[in-house]
Every structure is written in structure tokens, then in C-alpha cells.
Amino acid sequence: MAQLSLYLLVIMVSLFCNSSLAEPAFARHSQSNGYIKDSCRITRYPSLCLQCLSSYGNSTTIQSPEQLAQVALSVSLYRAQYTRAYMLKVAKELESSKAKGYYQTVKDCLAEINDSVDQLSQSIRELRRLGQETVANDIFWHISNVETWVSAALTDASTCLDEFPGHNMGKLKATIKGKVLNVAQVTSNALALFHRYAAAKYRAANRKP
């Protein structure tokens, strides 16, 4: 049930990315969008961050580092799953063709993206546990787990990109590289927003007697 809710959340985010809401709705959530805009400034790709997350701010109130980290990681997982599905289709087509060398490159990249999907899924589950945790020592352990998994997902996406060196490439190769690059960028943004949340969580834990 929780996983279904996550998918519905991400689909809603994706739909709102390309839509506009009525003026009253925009005014009602302008504070959320202002908070999201300020938060996205700490990321490496602020425009991409704002493009995805501000649309979520239009649909509901979001004003905490935890909410932003949750949505950002959900977007990363969705993009990774979408890219994996596309590459699976490409790999099957190439396997039956004569482009065996190219097939192996796609297959190797696909393995990296598959790992990214698993690691992002684990990080989202761990973030939920972190939001419910009250014991300081366990909080730091959960923070470390999320950081490790999201960093690994980003590394795997970057490793996949290394499978496609150079700038001169065919349309299919360029499409794959573009999708994987998008996964890497949204994951980088998610990691930055999680670090912001983790710092707030750390300070709150240290204030406890």
C-alpha cells in the first residue's frame, strides 16, 4: 500500500510538471513554492530541481526538508525505473540484431541502472524509518544508510554514462545517454536535499536532553 502511494505521488508530480493551475491555487501554495525555490538553490542543478518540485508545491503544502527529500528521492526512483524500462526494450532489440558489441555496452549500463533502482528504493524506505525514529544513535545510523544508498545510485548512473564516451553518437546512443544523465542529475539533487534534511535532523537530535 505504501509503495502504491509512492507511485501515485510521483505520477502526480510528473503530471504537474507540464501543467498550470488556476491563479487562486497558485496563490494558495505560493509559500510552498517559495520554500522549494530557496531549497533548490543548494542543489547542483537548481533549474531541474525547481521544474519538478515546484509542481508538487502547487498541489499541496510542502514546507519541510523531510518532505522535499522524500519527493526528490521519489522523482529519482521514477526516472531510474523509466530509464531501466527503456533500456530493457533497447537491449532486447539489439540482442537479436548484429550489433553485438553495442548490445554489451547497453547491457553493462543497464546493470548499473538496475542497481540504482534498488538503491533508491532502499533509501526511500530508510527515509521513512528515519522520519519515525526517536533514538539519537539510530537516527545517525539511518542517515548514514540513506546517504550510502543514494551516493551509490549516483555513482552507478555516472558509471553507466562512462559506457558512452565522446560526443559523436547515433540517435539511439544519444537518447540513452540523455535519459541516464537525467537520472544522475535528479539523484544528485535528491542527495543535496537529503543532506539538508539530515543536518536539520542531526541538530534536532543534539538538542534533546
Results as ranks from 00 to 15, higher is better:
58 N>I: 01
41 R>H: 11
89 K>E: 15
83 T>G: 02
79 R>P: 03
85 A>Q: 13
26 F>C: 10
41 R>C: 04
27 A>V: 09
90 V>A: 09
22 A>Y: 09
45 Y>Q: 09
45 Y>M: 05
39 S>E: 05
98 K>M: 12
60 T>V: 13
69 A>S: 14
30 S>R: 13
69 A>V: 00
47 S>A: 15
31 Q>W: 05
59 S>A: 15
50 L>D: 11
49 C>P: 07
45 Y>E: 12
36 I>E: 02
82 Y>H: 13
32 S>G: 10
53 L>T: 07
29 H>D: 00
43 T>H: 04
93 E>G: 11
39 S>P: 00
35 Y>D: 00
80 A>R: 04
80 A>W: 07
42 I>D: 12
28 R>G: 14
80 A>M: 02
97 S>R: 04
80 A>N: 05
57 G>E: 06
76 S>F: 03
28 R>P: 00
64 S>M: 01
70 Q>N: 15
77 L>A: 06
35 Y>L: 04
90 V>N: 01
75 V>L: 04
30 S>Q: 14
34 G>T: 03
67 Q>N: 12
58 N>T: 10
38 D>G: 09
52 C>L: 10
33 N>A: 03
75 V>K: 02
24 P>N: 10
50 L>Q: 14
82 Y>P: 06
80 A>I: 05
26 F>V: 12
33 N>R: 15
50 L>H: 10
